[in-house]
Structure formats: C-alpha cells, structure tokens
Design a protein around this nucleic acid. Structure first.
Length: 980
DNA sequence: CTAACGACATA
DNA sequence: GTATGTCGTTAGC
C-alpha cells in the first residue's frame, strides 16, 4: 500500500498555499515550502482538554450516555492536521505519571489543578485505540510530560534535517521554536496558526525563543502552578526581558529596580530561578527519534470504522473516509485534486440564476464542498449554494405573497432594532419554505411606510398556513406592536429542541452546527459584539441583511424537518403539540398584557429603606471600629474573622474567602450584636437594589406596565423561568420584603387582582405517583399534610403535634421532593446528623411506597437513561451510571426530583391553556398576567369576578386527573399581597 | 468592559 | 438536597 506522503510536491503546494492565503494572508509560511521532510508531533492532552472545553456548553453525549466531547475534539483537530498537511511523519505524545523531576523540584507543581473531568479520563483509552487502528505511533515515557518528549524529539529530528511541527495550543512550546521547529496551533472550529521565530519574537517581545523560558519563569503560569516572580505579570515580564534579557541577568541587577518592585523581586530570587527551571522543557528524555517509526501508514479502515461507529461519530467517519478516499483517488490517478472529487459526489444542478435577476421559482442549486469546509469541518453560507432574494418592490411583494399562500408551511424570522420585542422597530422579515431558498422583505425607518408594507402580508399571517420559527414568541410580539396577529398552527424549533434535549442550549447557531453541520453567519460579525459599539441591524447593507436573515429562516426550516422525527423518537410529539405550542400563544398574550405597578409606592418604600440602611451602616461601622464596604463579602469576612475574631476556625468558600452567607451569620448571631445588623443591612440592600429601585425602571413607557419575559426553553425540568424583570421571585417571606407585593396592583379601579395557588402540588404528585395510601388519604381528608406527617412519624395524635414536630416534618416533606440526605436535613433543622437519619428512616417506614417509588425512578433512569413526567416530558440523566459517587448521587436526586417538579409544571401549563381558551371563548375582559410555578395571577374585571373565580379554580384543579385531588386557593385583593 | 463569584430572592 | 434570575464586587482582559 502506498502512503499519504506519496503525492507529488506540486499538487500539495497548490492546495496548501491557497488555504494559507485564505486564512492567514499575513503569514508567509507554508508547512512544506522546501523539500525538507516534515514531522508532526501532536501534544495529546493539550488537544484533548481543548476539545473537551470547546464542547463544555454542549457536551457530546452518545446514545449510551458516554460523554465523547474530549474524543471528538481531539479527533477533529488530528484529522484536520492530517487532511491539510498530509504529513509524512507523525506521532502523538501523551503524559504518563507527570514529571517526576519537576515535582521533586517543587511540590506544588501542577498540584492545584482540578480533578481531571470524567469525560477526559475515559477519552484517553479510546483515543489510543483509534490511534492504534490508524497506525499512528503513540509516544509515552513514564515520568515525563508530553512537553519534554516532544521537545527532545524535535531537537533530534532537527539534527537529522527534518522540519518539525509541534501540534499544540500550549504557549510554553514557544521556547523550542527554531528555524526548523514550529508551533502548529489549531484554532477552534478549524484553521491553525503557525509560530516560527518571528512570531515568537513578536508575541513574547524576545529576540531568542529560548527567552520564552525566562518570560514564563517571571510571570508564572497558574495552569501549571509555576509561581513566577511576585507582582510580575505579562507586561512587566516583557519589560524585564527587553532590559535584561534573562532571569539571571535580572536577578543580578535588581539594584536598578525601584521601590516595592525591587523589594519583592529581591526577596524572591530563589523562586525566580526555580520558576525558570519549572518552565524549561527538558531535551534529554530517553527517547529516540527514529524516522522510520513515525512514517504515516494507511489506517486499518474496518477497525477505525468500527470504533467510530461504536462512538457514534457519524460525521467524523464521513470526514475520515472522505480524506482517505481522495488519497486513493489521487494515487490511482483517477482525479487530480480533491475538489474535483467532491463535485462528482454532488453534481451541480443546471439551474443558474443570473445575478440580480428576480426569480421566485428557481430551484436551489447544490453546492460543491470547498476548501473552507474542509478547513472548519462545517458548511457555511459560502460553501453552500443558496438562493436568497431581497424583495423590495411592490411587484416583488405581490409575487412573494402569491407563492407564500400556496404553501402548507412557511418559516419566517423578523429582524429588528433590538431585543425588547415590545419596544423595537421592524427592519425586515425573512421567509423560507424550501431548503436553500428564501426571501427577505426589508422595511424603511418610516414607521407608517413599514406598516403599509407589512399590510401586504396580512393575508399570510392571518392564514391557516403553518408558521415555522425559532422562538416565535418574540416574532409574534414584535408583529403585535404593528397590530398584525399570527394565526394558524405554529412550529417553534427552539421549543422542539427543548423537548428533544432539555439539558442542551437551544440557540440556532448551536443547533445548525449540531444537526446540519452548518455554521451560520455570526451576528457578532455583522454588528459587532454586544455592549459597546454594537451597531443596529439597520446599518448593515441590505445585501448582507438578506444573506443573514434568510439564512436563519432557511436553517430553521431545515431544522423543522429534522425535529419532527426527533420529537417522535423522544415520544414528545403530543407534549409539543398539545402543551408547549399552545402555551407559546398563552405566554405571548401574558407578556403583551404586562402588569400594573405603583411606582410612587415603590419610591416611598425606597426612601424608608435608605433611612434604615444608613442607620444600620453607622451602627456596623461603630461596632467594627472602622468603615468598610459591607456589601463586599471579602471585606466583611476580614473584619469579622481577622479583626474581630468572632470565631476560632471560620469557614472558607471554595475560592479561599471567608464564607459570610446567611446560614453562617445566623449561626454567629449569638456571638456579637453586629451580626444582626449585618443581616438586616443585607436584607434591605437586596430589597432595594433588586426590587424597589429596579422595578420602576422596567416599566414600559408606552404601556406604563411591566412586561416580564417567560423563558419557555430554559429550565431542564419543564418549568418556566421569568426575566427582565424576574417576577417569579418577588419577596414574600419577610414582613419588609412582602411590602414590595403591595406595589403590584390591578390595571384600574374596575379591576381587582386575583391570585390562585396550588396547595402542596408537588407532595400531592409524589403521593399519587407512588400510590402511597397513607399520604393519599391525608390529602383526601383535607388534613394539614405536615401536621399529619408529624403525627405519623412521631407517633402522637394529630391534635398533639408540637410546632417543632410539624416544622421538622415539613422540612422532611420538602426534602423528599428534592432527594433527601441526612446531611442536608441536619443542616436545615436543629437536628444532629444521626437524629436526621433516624427521622428519615422513620419517615420511610411511615410512607413505605414513597421509598419504593424513589428507588424505582432511579432504576428506571439507570436502565433507560432518562426519567419522565406525567405528560412524558423527558429529562436525560447522563451521570446516572457514573463511577463517581458524588456525580451519581446528584443524578439520582434529579431522577426523583425531575418527574415531580416537571409534572407540576406540566399540570399548571395545561391549566393555563384551558383557562386562556375559556377566556377567549367567553370573551371575558379579565386577563391572565403572571405565572409563579404553582400560582397564577389575574387582572379580574369586577363584573366578572363571581363567574371567573370558580372557572379558574375548576380548570386548575381538573387540569390533570390523579388519584389525589388537587386543591387551589383563590384570593382577591387591591394588590398582590392582599390577594394571597 | 466582561466573567466569575458570593449572596439572596422565589417555588 | 431540586429549579431559577439579579445584584454588587472583584479580578482579569
């Protein structure tokens, strides 16, 4: 068999040169400029870690629950190198047992690194298996780090006349760079940078790459725990290097330094020399560069295929086979270059649309795969044939509408001037109803004209045609400000994916990359990063607006086709169609409605709070004997525990600060009166900053009301969440906090606020699901469940239950829902650890079926990899079979909690949909305003009060039938607090 | 200017 | 022990 390296130099030159020019016009290198032989040494762990963290927000979990992120990341990088470079010599270097020498020198060396993530640990054996199958040599030397192995091999290869490329993102390697040794730094998402001597000189401000060692020694490296010189960072290190050249020279001339810096550096001379040693890559590892061993050979295709299949690396396998296929083709002379081969695989269609010509009926072409795609692994707009048309004349709009009306399903996506749906202006709407094809209708700044153009499309929006979108709630809200209703069935790809995998993120960019292997134009590229200097979409040229907007609609349209099947696979189609999609409309209506807030009242409240805060501040300063920032946990910790020495052994947080949380302070309250003041101060500060002062700023100037946003695809259990502002965490527990609720008032004097609460819904659900008769009967008899539990657990008559007993029973009842542990319970109550354990044991004896149910949930999760709610909403628990007990226990608590919290969420969502339906059917003037997990709040017209009250109660109590009755308490008042 | 952290508000 | 979101401080870019 021939090898990769058997191509003619000419062909390779051409390909690589084009790639390089495309990605790095500033770099003059090619990896194979001369006839010199090339060897690539790959730093395995660095690439594995990098790959793992690249996927951290979106871990790659295969159907067996294996986290393959690290393997995938590494293989992508490796394959990318092979594909680009066709190296003739290549080896992959691993660490084994860390560096014996360095640890001898400095005990803390790499000591404070976090525990290696599980996914990385399991990755190594897989990767080594794959490498073996690919016939790629693996270099490991026990007691040495990969750095040292690579360093030694590079220098040996250089002597033998090779050009060496060290494939690693780790800047430490810069010290090895020479005329024949280069760093080859893979970039995220494909591409790479090559650092030769000039690059190293520039990046580190050195004349000789060896000075990189001095540089690292001076500034230190927290990842490797190289201490460095105190007070010396990047800037100072560069300055020193320019002046002194080396660490030794600096240390010999410290008398030239000034002030504090001189003191610090002089005191740390030994540390400096040690740091330099630690940063030095060893060049005398007992390994030998034997060119023959490193020659790249043909992979064992069946074996690699088997491994990739096992890991479910479908795209990677395709990619791998493709790389390999080109090579054989070239060897046999069947094809001269890669792109020709690709074109054959996906022939171009005949339909060519002349630039600028208006053609609504054109079929999209199919693209060839370009070098850029090979580079990043993702398709992009420039590698994909597409037909995106800007629509800007009345005639074109007429034609577009005519075509839209012929469809059964159309995807649309609005472009606007910002993120607040109810305050933005419409800039454009993209439509797509066919893969690779779409249209962009743009709107002028003149709002009257915008309204007129939009009216052209009213027949479409009001039609029964299915509307596809990504986060449709946003688009519908924007259109509502132009009085344009959106009717017909909806399909929201964001919500579809939320049901397919609730633990993932659902931005369209991620979905496009994951499901379509396609990287969309990034919004940041178009209008800049958010925050400062971000441009409006209006400032983007229409041509680019069209490409960006229609691409989104096109992708969304394609995702819908895929997700229809995925929903079916997850058995959540019904949940999607019957609950989540109808809920989109309900939430849209609630958000548009908003709630009335008495800002004058809040202003008064703020004044009162300020007075109290000032008083407490003075008192605290006096008792502490100094002024400091009480809001800074860091400063507060020092005052309490170093200056005042309130306690012998203070608790520390994970970052080494003194812990000053509420639980610690309550415990300390008996030690000193200052604690009480601090607790009060904290409470009032929180109230003022988060609620009293913040809420008035959230009032929409047009409506005079507060419009929260409900996030429907965030909480992994199926709950909603609320933000901008969060109205699901308005205070209620403390007297002072409760005042804030008085600010939430009815829309006018003809209305009152109505609040309807499920009583103990989660406990009722767990009672019903577990079929625990003892608990079910207590609910059926309308007993106080916590008192009833106390009576049973402490074996006393119901009417003799003490307050403490009830309180402890209540804590256990809640704990059960969260997945109790004795440790957690004893923290929450004044019980000791063993008392807590005893209480839990008795509890399980009292309610034996509860225990059985919980175990059954865990078993189910272990077997199927997920748990589900009463409406089949799934939560996947990848860690349920983890060997790490802490991680596994966490997953087990989720297995118990998710179905309960999630079923409660399902039930209130059902109730909301049914209530909204009846409101619309009967034409009530009352409105549903807020949802707070187990509570709904309404603006109720006084005339409708008596009709609506029983309707709400009935719909909530009968939303879902269980063996336990649901109970809803309804309250009415002139503000939210009164309504409770 | 941004991100991480600690603290704390709710169900 | 579950699920969230927001604020002020602080460290790092």
């Amino acid at each position: 068999m021939l090898k990769f390296c058997s191509f003619t130099a000419g062909t390779l030159d051409t390909i690589n040169w084009t790639l390089l020019k495309k990605n790095h016009p500033q770099i003059g290198y090619k990896t194979n400029m001369s006839d010199q032989k090339r060897v690539f040494l790959v730093d395995a762990f660095a690439l594995i870690f990098r790959g793992y963290y690249a996927f951290i927000k979106n871990p790659q979990i295969n159907s067996k629950g294996l986290d393959t992120s690290a393997i995938m990341g590494f293989m992508n990088s490796l394959l990318d190198v092979i594909k680009r470079e066709k190296p003739d010599h290549l080896a992959v270097c691993f660490d084994k047992g860390g560096s014996v020498d360095r640890v001898e020198m400095f005990e803390a060396y790499k000591a404070n690194r976090d525990e290696t993530p599980e996914a990385i640990k399991i990755a190594v054996p897989y990767i080594q298996e794959i490498l073996k199958a690919m016939h790629i040599p693996i270099m490991v030397k026990a007691g040495f780090e990969a750095d040292d192995v690579i360093g030694t091999l590079s220098k040996q290869a250089e002597k033998e006349g090779y050009k060496t490329f060290m494939v690693t993102p780790d800047k430490d390697f810069a010290q090895l760079v020479s005329d024949n040794i280069f760093m080859y730094k893979p970039r995220f998402g494909g591409g790479y940078d090559i650092w030769g001597v000039p690059e190293v000189q520039e990046k580190f401000g050195v004349t000789d790459p060896l000075q990189v060692i001095d540089f690292l020694g001076m500034m230190g490296d927290s990842a490797d725990n190289i201490p460095g010189l105190p007070g010396v960072g990047e800037k100072t290190a560069k300055k020193f290097l320019t002046t002194y050249g080396t660490m030794e020279n600096l240390l010999a001339n410290t008398h030239e330094l000034k002030g504090k810096m001189r003191e610090k550096v002089e005191a740390a001379k030994d540390l400096g020399l040690l740091s330099k040693k630690l940063a030095t890559i060893m060049l005398d590892v007992p390994v030998t560069f034997n060119a023959k061993d490193f020659e790249l050979d043909q992979p064992d295709m069946p074996k690699v295929t088997e491994l990739f299949n096992e890991l479910e690396f479908r795209n990677l396998l395709k990619n791998f086979t493709k790389t390999f296929a080109i090579d054989t083709a070239e060897e046999t002379g069947a094809s001269k270059n890669g792109s020709e081969e690709k074109i054959k695989a996906t022939p171009k269609k005949e339909t060519l649309i002349p630039e600028g010509q208006f053609d609504l009926f054109a079929a999209p072409g199919t693209g060839s795969v370009s070098e850029e795609e090979i580079a990043s692994g993702f398709k992009t707009i420039s590698t994909t044939n597409h037909f995106y048309q800007h629509i800007d004349s009345p005639f074109a709009r007429t034609l577009l509408l005519r075509n839209l009306m012929k469809q059964t399903a159309v995807c649309f996506d609005t472009e606007t001037t910002g993120l607040k749906a109810l305050e933005v202006e419409l800039i454009g709407i993209a439509f797509s109803y066919e893969t690779g094809k779409g249209y962009y209708v743009s709107f002028p700044e003149d709002q009257a004209e915008t309204q007129r153009i939009l009216e052209d499309f009213r027949p479409f929006f009001e039609s029964e045609i299915e509307k596809i979108g990504h986060n449709l709630k946003y688009d519908i809200k924007v259109l509502s400000t132009y009085k344009m209703p959106v009717k017909g069935k909806l399909f929201d790809t964001m919500i579809a994916h939320y049901l397919i995998n609730p633990d993932m993120r659902h931005n369209m960019d991620v979905l496009a990359e994951t499901y379509l292997n396609y990287q969309p134009i990034s919004i940041a590229e178009l209008i800049g990063k958010k925050g400062k200097n971000q441009l409006s979409m209006r400032s983007v040229p229409l041509k680019e607006q069209t490409e960006y907007a229609v691409e989104d609609a096109d992708i969304t349209f394609q995702l819908k086709q895929l997700f229809t099947g995925e929903l079916e696979n997850g058995n959540v189609t019904k949940l999607f169609n019957d609950i989540e999609l109808p809920l989109v409309s309900v939430l849209t209506a609630m958000e548009i409605e908003g709630i009335n807030v008495n800002t004058d009242f809040l202003k008064e409240l703020s004044v009162a709070l300020t007075a109290d805060i000032d008083r407490l501040e003075k008192s605290i300063y006096e008792q502490a004997g100094e002024e400091f920032n009480i809001a800074s946990p860091k400063q507060l910790g020092i005052v309490l525990f170093e200056k005042m020495e309130l306690v012998k052994k203070p608790k520390k947080t994970k970052t080494g600060q003194y812990a000053t949380g509420e639980d610690i302070l309550s415990y300390l309250a008996k030690e000193h009166d200052i604690i009480k003041d601090i607790q009060e101060y904290r409470q009032y500060k929180k109230l003022q900053s988060t609620y009293v002062d913040a809420l008035p700023n959230e009032v929409n100037p047009k409506t005079g009301r507060i419009h929260t946003q409900y996030m429907q695809a965030v909480a992994a259990t199926g709950r909603l969440s609320s933000n901008n502002p969060n109205l699901q965490n308005i205070p209620i527990r403390t007297a002072r906090g409760r005042e804030v609720r008085k600010a939430f008032v009815p829309r006018d004097e003809n209305h009152v606020l109505l609040a309807a609460d499920y009583s103990q819904i989660e406990l009722r659900i767990i009672a019903a699901l577990s079929e625990e008769e003892n608990m079910i009967n207590a609910f059926k008899n309308g007993e106080d469940i916590h008192a009833s539990t106390a009576a049973k657990v402490f074996n006393v008559p119901l009417n003799e239950v003490t307050r403490d007993q009830r309180s402890n029973a209540k804590t256990v009842n809640f704990g059960i829902v969260y997945g109790v542990s004795a440790f957690g319970l004893s923290n929450q109550t004044d019980l000791s650890r063993s008392e807590a354990k005893e209480l839990i044991d008795t509890y399980y004896e009292t309610y034996p079926k509860l225990k059985a149910y919980m175990s059954a949930q865990v078993d189910f999760a272990r077997e199927h990899g997920y748990v589900e709610t009463v409406l089949n909403r799934r939560r996947y628990l990848k860690d349920i079979n983890s060997r790490n007990a802490v991680v596994r226990n966490g997953a087990e608590r989720n297995a118990v909690n998710a179905p309960i919290q999630g079923s409660a969420a399902d039930i209130i969502k059902l109730a909301m949909i049914n209530i909204q339906k009846r409101f619309e059917k009967e034409g009530f003037r009352s409105r549903m305003l807020l949802q707070v997990h187990d509570e709904l709040v309404f603006d109720t017209h006084k005339d409708e009060l008596e009709i609506i009250k029983p309707i709400i109660k009935y719909e909530m109590e009968h939303a879902f039938k269980m063996s336990v009755p649901l109970d809803v308490e309804v309250g009415i008042g002139e503000n939210w607090l009164e309504a409770h």
